[in-house]
Design a protein around this nucleic acid. Structure first.
Lengths: 155, 155
DNA sequence: TATATAATTTAGGCATGCCTAATTCAACGT
DNA sequence: ACGTTGAATTAGGCATGCCTAAATTATATA
């Protein structure tokens, strides 16, 4: 049995469902169809269907009509997706995107970017976070966003 | 007839086709099914189908079996998509993503980001481009990418 | 414990896009 | 003019995901 690593190509929706289940299971260790449906904004019937598929693929433990939880495999995928999303949200927020929008865009991009791109974004976020103080260039950028003028050439 | 502005919600594939047609028409003013198919990596039969839809929606002039070109509406969409992509590519390249990968990721993201996010990315690219010299922080970032150590705290 | 209610599943459809195979047609050369 | 040929279209399918309506079942309450 080959372990499905994070960069295995899964459909966007598959990753969405796994991350939703991961999130919703955090407190009780399992979740239910209705909750997933609400979280993802789809009807329970659609969730039911998808759960059968996820179960066949070995990502979830699915006791029909009772509960849903992740297998180790499923959890691994969900954690990867979540980490990607968190990086993306931080990144967008740094760039001045409103948090809510940053989160929505992260939700999409978390599924599609190449690993090389994610790596650079991750480094960038860490670079800024590791900076001793609020970096000068970043305040310059914020100023530039407001005024439209680059502080270094306002002469 | 309401004008479809750039931020009208079109399917990803619709935008892909329009941009392909835009690109392929640049020299002659029109293009053909086969070229579009090659450009997008699909079969001519699929292109044929999509062209009927694009034509019904008023994005292209489609003289069956003869040629395909964009309407003003279609061109507007294609230009918006292209501008978004160019911004994204520049941006990723600035961050150290290899060009080829930057282009592929841009191809996906050009269809999905909120306008607010695109706006910030655009500003960021312009901010860097408008900087008097190669910005210090950017070389620091590159150094950080190589060494894993933030130059400002290497003490 | 029986039943009402709420959750879930199944069945049957729809839209988007892609494919292969078979057919149709424009255009070129003779 | 006409046949050949390569481009394009149509027909029929498939996969993914979503929906509604109808049928099931678990569970909480009387």
């Amino acid at each position: 049995m080959i372990s499905k690593s994070c960069d295995m190509k899964l459909s966007r929706r598959t990753e969405d469902y796994l991350e939703a289940i991961y999130h919703l299971s955090e407190s009780r260790g399992y979740t239910r169809v209705k909750e997933i449906a609400e979280h993802l904004g789809v009807k329970p019937a659609s969730v039911s269907e998808m759960l059968s598929k996820l179960s066949n693929k070995g990502f979830i433990v699915y006791e029909k009509r009772l509960f849903v939880s992740l297998t180790a495999e499923g959890r691994k995928v969900a954690e990867c997706v979540r980490e990607r999303r968190e990086t993306l949200v931080k990144f967008f927020v740094m760039l001045g995107v409103p948090r809510k929008i940053a989160e929505e865009d992260a939700c999409i991009m978390e599924h599609v970017l190449h690993k090389e791109t994610m790596t650079q974004l991750r480094k960038f976020v860490k670079f800024v976070e590791d900076s001793p103080a609020d970096p000068m260039w970043l305040s310059h950028f914020r100023e530039y966003c407001e005024s439209g003028v680059h502080p270094c050439i306002k002469s």
